[in-house]
Structures are given as C-alpha cells and as structure tokens.
C-alpha cells in the first residue's frame, strides 16, 4: 500500500541521518523571495510571498548560523510542472554536509540509498535496483552521444544539433540547448544508477567552479539518474556572494530575453553565504524514488486520496 510505502521510506531516511548525527530541521514553506532559476516558476501566495521551490536558501541561512550538518524532508512547489515524473507539489529530501567535499557526498548518497533499499526490502521488492552505481562525467556522456565537447562546442553547432531533433524554434541560451540535447538523447538511456559529474559552467547554479582532470573549468556538481529519471542533484556549495550575485543577475538577463518578469535578488542569502562553512548539499525527490522502486507509471498515483 502506498501509504505504508512512503512511511517506510521516510522512516529509513530519518534512521540513516539520525544515526549519523545529522540534525533534522524545518524551514518556512512560505518565503519572501521567488526562485531565481529561469525555468523554475514559484507559486505566489498573495500578500505573503512565495511557496518555496526548494528549501535551499532557508537551509543555507541556517547553516551560516548553526555550522553543522542538517537535513529536511518537506513539500516543495513548482508551477506548471505536470507530467508522469512531475507534480506541482512534491516531497523533497534536502541535506547539507558541513566540511564535506562533493566526492564524499556522492559516496554518502549511494550509501543512503542502499540503506533505504535494505531497510524496506522486507516489505517492498527492490531487487531490480541492486546493481552497482556508475560514475561518468557530463563531458564523456556528451562526447559519446554527439561527438562534441559540451564545454567548448559552439553555440551554432548546439543550435544545429537541437534543430535536427525538432527543438521548438525560439531564442535559446547555451544552457537550454545543452539541457534539450541531454534530456532527449542522453538521459533516457541512463538505466543503472549513475552519478553524472562535472557540469558545464553555464549550469553551475549555486555550485562552486573547479577544474576537471583535463584542466577544463566545470561546475562542481553531480546528478544521480536511475532508469532515465533524475533522482538527486548535488553541489559543492558556492560561498562567494559576489559570484552568486553575478549568477542571479545573469538569470534575470535570461528572464528578460524570454519576456519573463525579473526576480528580486535574495539579499539575505547573499549575506549568509560567506558565513556558511565549507559544505556540500544534495536534494532528492521522494516521489520519484517511490516511482523507481515500485515501477509505477506515474508519480501522481502516490497522492491519490480517493
């Protein structure tokens, strides 16, 4: 039964974090600032603010004061995301590990998932998910599929590749082309649990910049895909508020390009950032995890109250 299914997963996640002394926190669902991300639309609560699209900003504010590892399981809200893998309200696990580098967080993500699967295995069949986890760079995936280096390929070439796949004809930024190509040709083929790391700079979001083993500048983040589904997303967290302000302003510039309203900059976050300890953070979609484990065709099923 779905009710028990979710409960068992949540219990296992909490058991893992409590046993490793990560503190569970709660941050307000209603926030003063909307998400800065160009393609994540916040739901406005009139006279109050916005429903959070992720607890990222509030948790970073907490981190800047508390300084130690924290986790949260909460509902998050994103307007107009409706599909068999998407819901306008869904449940997210988000956690931050003080002093961790991204490699250590990657190892922990795998450990956490293996722990959860083991904990629920008595009542739910997880046998199909117990293969080894893989690791591959964004660059390798892109090279394998398109024979192009995603960090250096020209905008013109990206546009050609996208057009050949019937991309809707509008003005696109570099990141949009990359996303389109990745989502259409690469992501659906990732079946075994796979960590994809070293993202293009234009997709750094709130991750630090580092160098890959060939000396190319990359965003120090990873995503975990299982059976074609994006399950988790993690950053070596950026602590340079000047750099974050630049990225927020860039987002607003792209918003203007698409005729969207600009989003005021969350100055509270900019103030918190330098006080944050070195840390790595990840988020994981609980409903997608349920979908992957159960093989259910639609995540909306887990919200049936009839």
């Amino acid at each position: 039964m779905d009710l028990l299914f979710r409960s068992e997963i949540l219990k296992a996640i909490r058991k893992y974090f409590y046993s490793t002394s990560v503190i569970e926190v709660v941050t307000p669902v209603i926030q003063k600032f909307a998400s800065s991300e160009v393609f994540i639309e916040s739901i406005e609560v009139k006279n109050y603010g916005y429903l959070h699209t992720s607890p990222e900003h509030a948790m970073k504010h907490l981190l800047s004061k508390y300084k130690d590892s924290i986790f949260q399981i909460c509902p998050v809200f994103r307007a107009n995301e409706i599909g068999s893998f998407h819901k306008e309200e869904f449940q997210m696990l988000e956690w931050y590990r003080s002093s961790f580098d991204l490699t250590k967080l990657l190892e922990e993500t795998e450990k956490l998932l293996r722990f959860v699967l083991k904990e629920i295995a008595a009542n739910f069949d997880c046998a199909h998910l117990l293969f080894p986890f893989q690791k591959i760079s964004y660059k390798s995936l892109f090279l394998n599929t398109f024979s192009e280096n995603p960090h250096t390929v020209s905008l013109k070439k990206l546009s050609q590749l996208s057009k050949s796949l019937n991309m809707p004809n509008i003005n696109h930024s570099r990141s949009e082309y990359l996303d389109f190509l990745f989502a259409l040709k690469i992501q659906p083929k990732i079946m075994a649990p796979t960590f994809v790391f070293d993202y293009p700079l234009c997709q750094a979001a709130q991750a630090e910049i580092s160098f890959d083993d060939e000396g190319e500048m990359v965003a120090n983040r990873f995503e975990l895909f299982i059976e074609g589904v994006e399950l988790a997303n993690a950053y070596q967290e950026l602590r340079d508020s000047g750099e974050l302000l630049t990225r927020f302003n860039d987002n607003n510039a792209i918003r203007r390009l698409h005729g969207k309203k600009e989003v005021p900059v969350d100055y509270q976050l900019l103030e918190s950032l330098p006080l944050m300890p070195k840390c790595a953070g990840a988020s994981l979609g609980i409903d997608r995890l349920m979908k992957i484990i159960s093989g259910s065709p639609d995540i909306n099923k887990f919200y049936d109250t009839d």
């Binding site: 991300e37 160009v38 393609f39 994540i40 107009n80 995301e81 409706i82 599909g83 068999s84 893998f85 998407h86 991309m167 809707p168 990141s175 949009e176 996303d179 389109f180 990745f182 989502a183 259409l184 992501q187 997709q203 979001a205 995503e223 994006e230 997303n233």
Partner: peptide, 14 residues
Amino acid sequence: NEFVKPGKGQAFNR
C-alpha cells in the same frame, strides 16, 4: 504526450 523538464532547464513536451 510526455512532459520533459531537465532539472533547471526549460520544459517541453514530446
């Protein structure tokens, strides 16, 4: 009709 949305990317429908 499949709704596709890469993490922080633009949503489209296949």
